[in-house]
């Protein structure tokens, strides 16, 4: 594959994806969406339109009721390190409350000092603490460091900075954006904040326009 073709490669692709719980109403209906390597896609739309559900499907947490989700044309690998990693809205839920942060942050790989420093993680002070001793903004930095492993190729940020104050939000996003650009990672930003999406993304999709369930 040439460099430019690689740059333009389709990483994640939804093909006629529909989803519902059991026999409940359709939450997602006939969604078609391709996300390419070179773009940073913003998925916006009000709550209740299935943004988070779609992100869970894309990350492989749930399977679509109908249709297919493809990672580079194939099914997403179920075992081993997943190339698609997710950052959640509530970092305190994404970290084991009984684990010290040093252990949590190195669960998938050993982040280097330089990255930790850029994320403003005070490793001396915070590594020996438990999640309930730090604030949400501090914890989210750990979650970001944790998913930036060498094997990660795509990052889904589901309302990652919704609970953070503006300064922390800018700080964490700037580091993540740098990494994404430097390593040519795919990025999907799910947010309800239009100005944030405009700042971060190269393409914005409103879920209301592509979700046939509404």
């Amino acid at each position: 594959m040439t460099d430019s073709a690689k740059h333009d490669e389709i990483l994640l692709s939804c093909q006629n994806v529909s989803f519902r719980y059991h026999k409940g109403p359709w939450i997602l209906r006939n969604i078609n969406l391709d996300i390419r390597r070179h773009e940073r896609l913003g998925l916006i739309g009000p709550s209740g339109y299935g943004k988070s559900t779609l992100s869970r499907l894309l990350a492989g947490y749930d399977s679509p009721t109908e249709g297919e989700i493809l990672w580079k044309g194939k099914k997403l690998p179920q075992k081993g390190f997943c190339p698609v990693q997710m950052i959640y809205q509530h970092p305190e839920k994404a970290l084991d409350p009984r684990w010290k942060l040093k252990r949590s942050v190195s669960e998938g790989w050993q982040p280097d000092e330089e990255l930790l420093k850029r994320l403003n993680i005070n490793s001396k002070l915070w590594f020996s603490r438990y999640p309930n001793e730090l604030s949400g903004g501090e914890l989210q930095r750990f979650c970001v460091a944790r998913v930036l492993a060498p094997d990660t190729e795509f990052i889904i940020a589901d309302e990652m900075s919704t609970m953070l104050d503006a300064i922390t939000q800018a700080q964490i996003w700037n580091v993540l954006l740098d990494e994404v650009k430097k390593r040519d990672l795919g990025l999907l930003v799910i947010t309800h904040n239009n100005s944030l999406a405009e700042k971060l993304c190269t393409r914005i999709v409103d879920l209301r326009d592509i979700n046939g369930a509404f």
Partner: peptide, 17 residues
């Protein structure tokens, strides 16, 4: 001031609080 500048529509600048 830093809070203002950190807003996505105002520059999105990070700062060390």
């Amino acid at each position: 001031k830093a809070l203002w500048s950190a807003l996505p529509e105002n520059g999105f600048l990070s700062a060390d609080a």
